[in-house]
Design a protein around this nucleic acid. Structure first.
Lengths: 235, 235
DNA sequence: CGCATAGTATGGTCAGACCACACCTGAAAG
DNA sequence: CTTTCAGGTGTGGTCTGACCATACTATGCG
């Protein structure tokens, strides 16, 4: 019973591209050769090339679009959270992970990022300024729930970016994305949403104030309470 | 310039399967319908179905194999670290993230897991017993470097599993996987490896002892020193 | 009953075709 | 000269239909 190593054809292309990325023969902004060209180069069919392209796509390594010209085809981007989000989302659906674990992880990452000494003080100050703008935008009473959640997510990811760790930042964003549907579905009516959003606004302002006055530990504590409180409302 | 909503055909199948997973119409161990059947059900071609299957595959949701019978075709598994590992690995190659960030994240997760109150004390005790066995196996002087690294990885992931958080555990494993090639390449010769492995054995034993005697904070501190020291050797 | 054989369904791969789209070129219009 | 627009070209997206190796299943022979 010889267990086949099962060498998939698409891995030829995948490994070649990964190697080109590693050696910087390819980097962000570059265009990949066309699918037909890759197929001929590696002596495999276009269908197998497409398998590799699809993987790079869902992993957030490339962005594909039709048409011709410099901005068409497969272009290298760098969106680490795309692949992680998709993975978490699917495993959440498959019951491999649950909401408690995601919330717990989010608290871990966000409080860590809050207490971290910023790698780049200039960036940290920019974050504080930009989050202030987001807070103002979230004060708009006309804002739809979808828009609020979008800005809310940006607020949290921005704060986490202060730590200067792309892995943590991507995970944060991914954790947020993976349960966004769950959150939206668990607060169905607008009547129950209105009192919640008022509390969220207050909490955001308190968190921002703690950051602005450099009270990192307090900011972390407020973040933890904020996240825990919000998810306690989604039942 | 109307930005295309770009409705990809494979998303039809992907969303249908995700929904079936969410409602538990599909769960671990089940077989997916054949690709030809799915194509007909959703009115799309088999090629597009295969796109969705490929995504589920690389994300660690399913495992595919040829042949017929109950154990063939696409079977639901649950391997959250597969997709995350792949994503991290590719973005590491694409320079979207770097080794420092991965090591930093690993320390964050492992020290958190070490200090966490175990969700399941019985499992925690089993982990302590099993890690003891792993430590003994790593004492074998005949062990190849690859085998040592494999057991080493198992040791760390096991300890992290005590916290009872699948997200943290998967991320741990993924972080470890994503840089395993880097680690292997950065210590090329066996002469420099020998003194390193002796230190690693000592550190593992100290960490295990701290866990066994319930000195969680000390365990976390030793883990941090252990990880930092090891990566300081890989230059 | 035991076992070899043919049958069947699976995913993996390939080839070739057509489509919609975005850009590029160059001729026609101003 | 510039502007406009019509066609040409290359891209990924999709479909069809075919063949392969594999692994199980059923058949029928001994």
């Amino acid at each position: 019973m010889p267990v086949n190593p099962a060498p998939r054809a698409y891995q030829i292309v995948l490994q070649a591209i990964e190697e080109d990325l590693r050696t910087e023969k390819l980097s962000v902004g570059d265009q990949l050769p066309g699918e037909r060209a890759l197929a001929e180069q590696h002596g495999i069919s276009r269908a197998s090339v497409r398998d590799a392209i699809r993987i790079l796509d869902v992993m957030g390594i490339i962005k594909t679009s039709t048409g011709s010209g410099p901005n068409s085809g497969a272009v290298i981007v760098s969106n680490p959270s795309a692949g992680i989000s998709q993975a978490l989302r699917l495993h959440l659906a498959a019951k491999g992970i649950n909401v408690r674990e995601i919330v717990e992880s989010r608290i871990l990452l966000e409080t860590w990022a809050a207490q971290m000494n910023p790698r780049d003080p200039i960036h940290a100050q920019q974050v504080i300024d930009r989050t202030a703008v987001l807070i103002m935008r979230m004060d708009d009473a006309q804002l739809s729930r979808e828009a609020f959640h979008r800005i809310d997510a940006e607020f949290h990811v921005l704060l986490a970016s202060m730590a200067g760790n792309a892995v943590v930042e991507s995970m944060m964003e991914s954790l947020r994305n993976s349960i966004s549907d769950y959150v939206a579905a668990s607060i169905p009516d607008d009547e129950s949403w209105q009192p919640i959003v008022r509390v969220l606004r207050r909490q955001h302002k308190a968190i921002h104030h703690a950051f602005a006055t450099n009270q990192r530990e307090r900011a972390a504590q407020l973040l933890e309470e904020h996240i825990n409180w919000f998810y306690s409302q989604t039942r």
